[in-house]
Design a protein around this nucleic acid. Structure first.
Lengths: 355, 355
DNA sequence: GCTGTTTATGTTAGCGCTAACAAAAGTTGA
DNA sequence: TCAACTTTTGTTAGCGCTAACATAAACAGC
């Protein structure tokens, strides 16, 4: 390829004044404008805003006055580009419609916001492939860290994390492979609620499962193990549907369950939505809860206290999971290793009238 | 101030090799690396990725191969800085715990994501001051546009929008001042449900209100106007509480209402949460719904179909609001004016058993 | 063939900020 | 008083990308 010649043959110092100035975005006030107004250099403005203790009080005040007078808002893009730190954390959750994850988000925000980090929220809709796409898309923002829901992700996921050297904390569940995770044992929780139903004298305990994500399957595993141990496991008492859970689905599943197994005397629903739909249907059908049929849910959402009868369920420390996961991530982003790579926050059985 | 002298006195062409190289963030693959690998210039890579039709198929393929081989992920910060466009939209909503806004978000995303925009979600917790802080914080990202909930914001809000020349679309309600808005008349909806209760022969119609945000107050205004017109407005039938709504609060308010006005024969609750809490309490107390007391809610959330008795409420086009608001904003960000600055999407009365 | 137009590709500079280093000013201790 | 620090402030270059313009090549019309 022949080397191209240019008519400009511009020298280093020759500024081409014929160029059109670019349109500035934002209010157009830059750090240099602030510096000029305050009579200092740009780096002093940068320091006054980011490391105030490094700047003398006198200059700090002058800078602050100039910032206020001009309405200066620093540019995150420029800062990220220059410092190679975006001060941004990517949070990937499976659903925004589920209170569980909203509570977790609130916990995360309560830690990250004061630390100067902003959250990018990605909603994977319980789909590993979509989650991978989200990660790819959000990597363009060069997040400094990652908060993930669950342990199993699409195949290239971990490779991407390694390639980009991204610290990540896994939430909601517990891994055994050294990954940093904050959560509780989904399996153990499923076992605990099943043991409770057994302790109530129930013997033909069914399972209603929707979505069938990783966590639901672990609760199911806990349920199966417990019943198997008691010699009571019966696969024909399990009703599973991979579509997203809803109260409607809980009602429909209850119908199906009672039709197939009228002798079923308890139901562990994989979440409160299903359980509340099932309870409402029991009311309509005149099925006595808990006498003829005990019902248990999972998560302890607000309606669990308010449905009739009130719902026995598993309270999960979801806000605290967010808080501790965010703290661990902050720690890792500062270059430290987490104190404990595996934080088990446990769960609590909420025993109410439905059992 | 004396001019400082430096020992370096570096010339243009003299590269100071003693400097430490900076640590690269991300995977460290830049557009130049891709360009080198593909045997083209950087700008060709940029164009191949952003305006593929401007690049010949042959080079486009070579670039794509290099991108895949190196695992290149473009940097949004650098792109935003160079182009003065962040391809980011800031969405400010009052609450993440309210399904209403989640549905709106989903609608927004369905339009913005395919257009290459990413959302920044700010949760103001129904607080105008916090909303202003969020705007300030997120302005650092230089969003290209803004989607706002409601019409009234903190005082410096509009000034900031003007200063930064930010296109904005207001959602959920209808303004008369030329601002671009997509929603429905909250006032008219409040009036419509009140008229419905009147048509059912109710005469002492109460109002339960929580949160008391802008939209609740407009629904209240519609309720008042309708009753006043019928000569039935009675301020002692209004129970208002500025704290966030919940089912618990609905139950408590029902107690208070029946205690103060046992003759009350209908209740318009400002949202479904309150209504469902009130309904549950009626069940517990043995209050016949709708015979002795009719109950109506607002929003038509999922549980409205499932509570007992099912809840009469107002279905709001919240997803469609998000969709159309996002479309209008895209239009404005492209420099165009919205076709109609004011889009009224209406609402629908869902008449069920509770009335 | 020659000119005017369109298409494909390239060079340069600069977006707004901060890391790295340099220098000046202040402070300490003998 | 002066060397040795520490603190404060400043200069330079460059982060990774794209706008603006330049050039070359391909094509059109005569």
């Amino acid at each position: 390829m022949p080397r191209l010649r240019y008519n400009g043959s511009s020298h280093f110092l020759q500024t081409d004044m014929s160029r059109k100035p670019r349109i500035r975005s934002g209010s157009g006030v830059t750090m240099h404008d602030v510096a000029k107004a305050a009579g200092v250099s740009a780096i002093t403005v940068s320091r006054a805003l980011n490391q105030p203790q490094q700047v003398s009080p006198h200059l700090r005040d002058k800078v602050q006055q100039a910032v206020d007078a001009l309405g200066y808002v620093p540019s995150r893009s420029a800062s990220a580009l220059a410092s190679a730190r975006s001060r941004t954390v990517l949070v990937l959750i499976p659903s925004l419609g589920n209170t569980v994850f909203l509570d977790t988000l609130a916990g995360i925000e309560s830690i990250l916001a004061p630390a100067g980090y902003q959250m990018l929220i990605g909603n994977s809709h319980y789909d590993a492939e979509q989650e991978l796409q989200l990660l790819r898309a959000y990597l363009q923002h060069r997040p400094d860290g990652l908060l993930l829901t669950g342990l199993s992700h699409a195949a290239p996921f971990d490779a991407l994390l390694r390639q980009h050297a991204l610290p990540a904390v896994y939430m909601m569940d517990l891994a055994d492979d050294g990954r940093c995770c904050v959560g509780f044992s989904q399996e153990e929780a499923g076992a605990a609620i099943t043991r409770h139903l057994l302790s109530r004298g129930k013997r033909r305990i069914g399972f209603l499962g929707a979505q069938l994500d990783e966590r639901v399957l672990k609760r199911l595993a806990g349920y199966r193990a417990t019943l198997a141990e008691a010699g009571l496991h019966d696969p024909s008492l399990e009703w599973l549907d991979p579509s997203p859970s809803s109260m409607q689905m809980g009602a429909d599943m209850l119908d199906a369950a009672l039709r197939a197994r009228p002798d079923c005397d308890a139901l562990f629903c994989c979440n409160d939505d299903l359980a509340i739909g099932a309870l409402a249907r029991c009311q309509q059908l005149g099925v006595a809860v808990p006498q003829r049929l005990a019902v248990a849910g999972f998560n302890d959402l607000q309606p669990a206290t308010w449905c009739i009868p009130s719902l026995t369920t598993v309270a999960t420390p979801r806000r605290e999971i967010g808080v501790q996961a965010a703290r661990a991530l902050l720690n890792m982003m500062d270059g430290g290793m987490p104190d404990a790579p595996r934080v088990d926050l446990g769960f609590e059985l909420m025993l109410r009238r439905s059992s």
